[in-house]
C-alpha cells in the first residue's frame, strides 16, 4: 500500500510527496525499512526498490512482518537529475535528523526519521555519485560497528568498510537512526545516473537474506559471498595531481599489484600524458573513477591494501 510520509504544497498546483510502499506479510514479524533516493542523481536503488517490491508481492505468503520501501526521499532531485534538493541547493543527507519547525527540507527529513524509527533494521542505499563507480559495499561508522558488523555480510556485498567517525556525518540519516536505537546500514553501489542490474539483484537477495535472518522471510536465498571486511586495512586514496582527462588502465574490481598503473591523466590539447596514476600499495580496486574530467584533487581510485 502506498502511503505518504510527507507532503508539502509547492508554489504552483503541485505537492512535494515523500512516499513509501508498505508491504505487509502475515504474522507479527519484523519491520525492515529500505530507503533510497536521498541523493537525486543516484539511481541504483531504484532498481532495488522495484525488484524487492516485485519479489515480495509475488511471494507474499513467505513474508512475516512488514517491509517499508522508500524509493525517493528526494523526489524533486530524481526528477531533475540533481543530487540535492532543487531550489534549495541542499544535500539532504546533511540535514538529518531534521526539524519539524524548520524549513521544508528539515521538516521532510524529520518526518522520514520519525516514520522509520522503531524498525528492526533499515538499509539506506546510495550509488556513490556520477564521478565514481563502487563495488557493492556496506559502510559502517566505527562507533556503530558492534551492532552493524554482524548484519552487514548478509547483504551480499563485496566489501564492508568500517570507516572513522567524522563530525559532519552526524547529519546523515544513518547516524540519526543509529543514534536513536534503530539499526541502519548504508550501502554504496555502482555509479550515479546509471543502473547496474547485476549489483541490484545481489542486493535484493541480500535484503531478503537480512530479513530472513530476522525471521521475516521464509523464501530461499542463495548463500552470500563472504565480503572483505576492511577495518584495519589501509585504504589508499588516489587523487589527481594534474588536471585533464582520466583514462583507466585496469578493470574495476580487479586486484592490483604493488606499483601497478591504474590509469593516466591526459591532455587532449597537446596529446600528452600529464600524470601516471599508480597504486603504491596494491590491493582490491573497489572504487574507480567513471567521469573522465579531473581537477587536481579529484578522486580517481580507492584501493584496499593489506593489514596495517
Amino acid at each position: 500500500m502506498v502511503e505518504t510520509v510527507y507532503s508539502a504544497e509547492l508554489p504552483v498546483n503541485e505537492h512535494l510527496l515523500v512516499q513509501k510502499n508498505r508491504i505487509c506479510g502475515h504474522g507479527n514479524g519484523p519491520r525492515m525499512a529500505v530507503v533510497t533516493g536521498i541523493h537525486g542523481d543516484e539511481l541504483e536503488g531504484q532498481y532495488v526498490a522495484f525488484e524487492l517490491a516485485r519479489r515480495l508481492n509475488d511471494d507474499l505468503d513467505l513474508l512475516h512482518g512488514t517491509v517499508d520501501i522508500y524509493p525517493a526521499i528526494n523526489p524533486l532531485g530524481i526528477n531533475t537529475i540533481q543530487r540535492g534538493v532543487p531550489t534549495f541547493d541542499i544535500d539532504l543527507n546533511r540535514t538529518f535528523p531534521g526539524d519539524p519547525a524548520g524549513n521544508l527540507t528539515q521538516v521532510a527529513t524529520a518526518a522520514v526519521v520519525d516514520d522509520i524509527l522503531g524498525a528492526d533494521v533499515c538499509v539506506d542505499i546510495h550509488a556513490s555519485n556520477i564521478f565514481l563507480r563502487e563495488m557493492p559495499q556496506v559502510r559502517i561508522n566505527e562507533i556503530t560497528a558492534d551492532s552493524l558488523l554482524p548484519l552487514a555480510p548478509l547483504l551480499g556485498v563485496d566489501l564492508v568498510w568500517v570507516h572513522a567517525s567524522a563530525t559532519v556525518l552526524q547529519n546523515t540519516l544513518a547516524y540519526s537512526l543509529n543514534e536513536r536505537g534503530t539499526r541502519c546500514l548504508v550501502v554504496e553501489t555502482g555509479v550515479g545516473m546509471r543502473i547496474t542490474e547485476s549489483y541490484g539483484k545481489r542486493l535484493v537477495d541480500g535484503l531478503l537474506r537480512l530479513l530472513g535472518s530476522l525471521g521475516g522471510w521464509d523464501g530461499s536465498v542463495p548463500d552470500a559471498l563472504r565480503p572483505t571486511v576492511a577495518r584495519d586495512q589501509r585504504v589508499e586514496f588516489l587523487n589527481a595531481s594534474e588536471p585533464g582527462i582520466f583514462l583507466p588502465r585496469v578493470r574495476h574490481g580487479s586486484t592490483l599489484k604493488r606499483g601497478q598503473l591504474v590509469g593516466v591523466v591526459c591532455d587532449p590539447l597537446t596529446g600528452t600524458v600529464r600524470e601516471d596514476v599508480i597504486s603504491e600499495q596494491g590491493g582490491l580496486l573497489f572504487t574507480l573513477r567513471e567521469y573522465p574530467v579531473v581537477y587536481p584533487g579529484s578522486l580517481m581510485a580507492r584501493v584496499l591494501g593489506g593489514a596495517r
Partner: peptide, 8 residues
C-alpha cells in the same frame, strides 16, 4: 516571489 509550504 514564489514560496512552498513550510518555509520560514
Amino acid at each position: 516571489p514564489l514560496v512552498e509550504q513550510h518555509i520560514i
